[in-house]
């Protein structure tokens, strides 16, 4: 159920944002590349930007906004209406029942969503590269694929995995610590989104630094 909510539920918005980021990226780069007469390299620039950075970070921010808030508000509501106390009183460990499924679902779904966002972003770039810049589809794809190294692929999948763990744990943390009725639920939800978004950028810098130093 959590996988459905986090994965399938987030798919349309992730795909939409992926497509638009690919389109905008290609439009912006085309002007700069045209200055140097290098519009044939559009695929390279778009693919590196999307696979390494835009795909993982934009997807993470969407998941933070959609799912960290969802997790925090759901668990927060359960906390203030004593459902979590009831769960413990009736023989269930809330960590096993509530936190682990959300953590696992986010950790599995977010890399998949990122891969989809990357693909849709590259397709968006292809659309602009072919219709406006004048590249051929073959030219775009070969330059986009050839530039990618194993390092980029690992980076592009490792980031969403780590982001997912942080986003779900932050959502669960603020949800489980909610107090003060409905106002408290709102506060927890806001904190979960803000804190998880900040963590996404901090971790992004750290992982990027690690991969940069490896090459």
């Amino acid at each position: 159920m959590q996988m459905d909510s986090i994965g399938v539920g987030s798919l349309p918005i992730v795909a939409l944002i992926g497509a638009f980021s690919g389109i905008v990226m290609t439009l912006q780069m085309s002007r700069a590349l045209a200055t140097y007469g290098a519009t044939s390299q559009t695929g390279q620039v778009v693919s590196i930007s999307i696979i390494r950075e835009l795909g993982p970070v934009l997807t993470a921010l969407l998941i933070a906004g959609r799912n960290a808030s969802g997790i925090a508000s759901e668990l927060g509501s359960m906390k203030v209406t004593e459902q979590i106390d009831a769960m413990r009183a009736l023989g269930t460990d809330p960590i096993q029942k509530l936190i682990v499924p959300r953590l696992v679902a986010t950790a599995l779904m977010q890399p998949l969503l990122t891969a989809i966002a990357d693909f849709v972003g590259l397709m968006g770039g292809l659309l602009i590269a072919v219709t406006i810049i004048g590249n051929t589809a073959n030219q775009y794809w070969s330059s986009a694929i050839d530039i990618l190294a194993l390092n980029d692929m690992v980076q592009g999948l490792m980031k969403p995995f780590v982001f997912a763990i942080v986003i779900s744990l932050v959502g669960c943390f603020y949800g489980m610590r909610t107090s003060g009725g409905t106002q408290g639920v709102g506060l927890s939800t806001t904190k979960a989104v803000v804190v998880s978004s900040v963590w996404v950028f901090v971790i992004d810098v750290l992982i990027t630094q690690i991969f940069v130093s490896l090459t």
């Binding site: 509501s77 359960m78 203030v80 209406t81 004593e82 459902q83 106390d85 009831a86 769960m87 009183a89």
Partner: peptide, 12 residues
């Protein structure tokens, strides 16, 4: 032990 919570504690 049976317990009835103030807020009911029923699972929505």
């Amino acid at each position: 032990v049976g317990v009835l919570f103030q807020e009911g504690g029923l699972f929505d």
